[in-house]
Design a protein around this nucleic acid. Sequence first.
DNA 1: TGACCATGCAGAAACGTGCCTGCCAACTGG
DNA 2: CCAGTTGGCAGGCACGTTTCTGCATGGTCA
Lengths: 342, 342
Amino acid sequence: MAAAAGVSITTVSDALNGKGRLPDATRRHVREVAERLGYRPSAAARTLRTGKSGLIGLTVTTYGDEPFTFTEFAYFAEMARAATSAALARGYALVILPATSRHDVWSNVALDGTVVIDPSDQDPVVTELVRQGLPVVSDGRPAGTLPVTAWVDNDHRAAVLDLLDHLAAAGARRIGLLTGTTTDTYTRLSTTAYLHWCERVGQDPVYESYPAHDPCAGAVAADRLLARPDRPDAVYGLFDPNGTDLLAAARRYGLRVPEDLLLVCCSESTVYGTTEPPITTLSLKPRRIGTAVVQLLIDAIEGVEHDGPVEQVIPTELIVRTSSQRRPPRTTVSAPRSPSRD
Amino acid sequence: MAAAAGVSITTVSDALNGKGRLPDATRRHVREVAERLGYRPSAAARTLRTGKSGLIGLTVTTYGDEPFTFTEFAYFAEMARAATSAALARGYALVILPATSRHDVWSNVALDGTVVIDPSDQDPVVTELVRQGLPVVSDGRPAGTLPVTAWVDNDHRAAVLDLLDHLAAAGARRIGLLTGTTTDTYTRLSTTAYLHWCERVGQDPVYESYPAHDPCAGAVAADRLLARPDRPDAVYGLFDPNGTDLLAAARRYGLRVPEDLLLVCCSESTVYGTTEPPITTLSLKPRRIGTAVVQLLIDAIEGVEHDGPVEQVIPTELIVRTSSQRRPPRTTVSAPRSPSRD
DNA sequence: TGACCATGCAGAAACGTGCCTGCCAACTGG
DNA sequence: CCAGTTGGCAGGCACGTTTCTGCATGGTCA
């Protein structure tokens, strides 16, 4: 390449990177030759020399044997998409990595930093990365003393309390919970918020737990919850598929929604706008979270100072639909759903 | 590191890579010191030296301004998940890249090869990669003379013909199609298969098109299709959300499913098992496609010879549910859905 | 006219591997 | 006892950048 342009290696580098003291003529000439030859500088060499790879990792905690939970929960898909977009917009690319510390893969890729979704307490991957001096930003407030660079999360407690108040205001006397057996922060915070609320209003807790990664178990647990002698007249489901599961279970028991049973679930799926009846959902705004996480990470990589705290709380949104309104509005032709933009 | 272990750099390299002529004692010693120091060989240097990065790209064609379509279609999410798993299982990591040839990102990452989902004819990214000598495997039979290394696809034509026969056997007299305005291979093949089928059985085609990336437009198009004077008594929707869209539209027009309207859509979403009524779906088996694509790509990277053709056709699966059966089975308590495993 | 500076470029040292080559010691066979 | 072989390691080059330094040349100013 340098030979083809009749200049030195230094000049090529300077011309392409806009550095050095070169007249425009030389710069143009070099770029033109590079274009003609289809020359692409070696990313590996650049990375070796500069120490920056332009790659950031994305790690999703794994339930079960499958490495990812992308599919079951629209949350992860949306969050990952937003993160990818945000990274690309700033010239970075995203690498998807397993949460398990498989040396052979992790050490094969030179990362500038990593996004970790829902890290467990004492997460070995995180501690290893931090030891290497790499910035780590987590989606989900880190448990314990996990030394992340920054984190982004919702206020799960407030969201659940607000949601339960909403159900109570709609007439619910006994609200049930469909929750998970896993110990991740989301499940834990949401469940304790529920228990607190029950204590505050003097209701006996009514809940069923199941392993969230098993879609079959979700349907069974929904059934169990509605089969109880102390059957709730409203249910909040913590996970994405709970809405359809609960709706199906309600139909099996002849319960009308919302007349006999109020329903809310936490989901990012748009299908709940067109179910019969449409189901109220709690959105955690994964796109905003994915974007925020990546921004914080790249800021840390590039040494941008944050005077504020490196914690960011994203507000949730309760999308109220028919399933949580005791008096459903007069049935009218519902407008086609419109795309939500954040 | 070499100094800490009291050996030469060569010995360290040989010890960690299992090469050279070293007694087990030395090998163990070096590995132990490396472990103690938390030493990780530089991925950038290794890549520079060997020419292999252990990274493969994943590119999704973009509709509209958002770089990815992950969310709308469970297909992409499942396919990406399977591809990621398959790559990791063979020691590779996946990098998500934009389909647009943004130099700054593409040239920042050293790839060993790339998976391209649904490349357009004359795709500039593909031709550029091939020019660089990198293997490219596409999900979707490449249009025109696109020089991909290998490809994997379904037999869309056969799938559609089979599906239409199924609807006709269930009593459909006039089958409508909800299709897209885009020119990707999937849409094109499916639509022409529909037109062929219509011609064969002597039915006038009844279809509505809309830009598939716009979820709002899908609902409107579904409405349009059922509002036509030549209203079909069965509809096949090419895209994931069409099922719920059509169901909602049918309710608005007072049409019972499946008594007045048979419904099938192409989707990987599990929600169609619990809608009212459950909707028959055509599954393209994205997990098998994602796995196959990555296997072929890594085989090409590692120089594994294929005596057979480097084309692979994955069978589709028609998951028959109530919505496409004119005589619905006696209503019974439907079993909770079980996870499908491929 | 000589000192000084700006301009335009080239040389060369790293970055951290992998691998080829080579050297020394010890062992082996005749 | 000596040539040949084998085991055990170290030296050193190359991968393709970035960047620091340095060397000319020509212009400016006192």
